[in-house]
Design a protein around this nucleic acid. Structure first.
Length: 340
DNA sequence: TCTCAATCTCAAGGCTGGTC
DNA sequence: GACCAGCCTTGAGATTGAGA
């Protein structure tokens, strides 16, 4: 019994047509009679023929692969984006080639290099700040389109799809101000984070707009861990007891801040007129923020929508490479729970 | 004879493995 | 190490055949 995989030549032989006719039937191009199409389809079924896309891409200089480089594929934020991109790209006949770079410049460049070597048609990138110029050099040399996602504007002249961080911070700050808070702090993120910079920009400008005090001491960096947020919040509230509300850079920061505030002798809640209460409002909603007591109010950005818009933009860039650069900012929403 | 739809021929793409 | 064939498919251009 012959167990060799059927080739296009086998299909052509079986159907009694030429190889190029089979190719035309497969691609749906050209003018082919219904009789011939039926014969070819019958041969494909009989021989269990599966098209070799590697060979097809080799010949046509095209690829249906789109590279996606994210920082951390287990991060719920990126999981949502990846899901949206994958759904939309599949509908348009593309496949996703996924890699994670962490925060390493070298890893990001390595991922991009591998994707180019695999012949991807375009790259969607969550840029590492230190790697952005080198990454873009590589991608431009390969002459393929690139879209920056999720991690803020890079300053580079490339298309961008992601959350509107400035608006998110403005919405969060305005909500706290509307509740009567006048001493609002920002906890979390690192100085190198562009996302954090944009949020702090929105937070500061809103405070100024309402004529409220803004102090550098009230903006505190901390690492990704909850433990770090516990420590930082504890110290912040001990040092500045006037603070009645805190914006938290990410879900883990918000959860850590909750325990840090409690360690500082504060309770968590919306009523800043009750002496010892602190309101907490976090960015990037995650399921675990619903499980705390009280549950944490969060700014939610629809991550699947970011993915969906990114995939649509990539498909557009592949069909019209000279289309003008676009920046798509996805509007956030406020999820009000018990903490603010 | 002309036109046009349907089909075929052949070169080419980058990489691998075999031969000299 | 150099060269070449084979892998599998596509697409431009050539050919065929039927109808007007």
């Amino acid at each position: 019994m012959d167990i060799k995989k059927a080739k296009i030549t086998d299909v052509a032989k079986y159907a009694g047509v030429s190889v190029s006719t089979v190719s035309l039937v497969l691609s749906g191009k050209g003018r082919i009679s219904d009789t011939t199409i039926t014969k070819v389809n019958h041969a494909i079924e009989a021989l269990n023929y599966v098209r070799n896309t590697a060979a097809a891409n080799l010949r046509s200089h095209q690829s249906n692969l789109i590279g996606l480089v994210v920082r951390d594929i287990t991060d719920p934020f990126y999981m949502g984006i990846t899901s949206g991109i994958s759904d939309q790209l599949e509908r348009q006949g593309y496949m996703l080639f996924l890699a994670q770079s962490g925060n390493s410049k070298e890893k990001q460049l390595q991922c991009i290099q591998s994707m180019i070597q695999q012949g991807v048609a375009g790259i969607i990138l969550s840029p590492v700040r230190e790697a952005i110029n080198a990454s873009l050099d590589l991608i431009h040399q390969a002459n393929i389109p690139v879209i920056s996602i999720a991690r803020s504007e890079t300053g580079a002249d490339i298309d961008y799809v992601g959350p509107d961080n400035t608006l998110a911070a403005k919405m969060a700050t305005e909500h706290l101000i509307a509740q009567g808070h006048r001493h609002i702090a920002y906890v979390g993120g690192g100085g190198e984070s562009l996302t954090r910079a944009e949020r702090i920009g929105g937070y500061c400008s809103t405070l100024m707009q309402y004529g409220l005090p803004f102090k550098n001491d009230w903006i505190v960096e901390c690492s990704l861990s909850q433990a770090s947020a516990v420590e930082v919040t504890h110290q912040l509230l001990n040092k500045h007891p006037k603070i009645t509300a805190i914006l938290c850079h990410r879900p883990a920061t918000a959860i850590g801040a909750l325990y840090g505030a409690q360690l500082a002798g504060k309770s968590i809640g919306q009523d800043n007129y009750i002496g010892q209460q602190v309101a907490l409002l976090g960015f990037d909603n995650a399921p675990e923020t619903e499980l705390t007591r009280p549950a944490l109010s969060m700014i939610h950005t629809p991550t699947e929508e970011i993915g969906y818009q990114t995939a649509k933009l990539m498909a557009r860039k592949l069909t019209t490479p000279l289309a003008p650069r676009q920046s798509i900012h996805i509007k956030p929403s406020l999820l009000l729970r018990g903490s603010a």
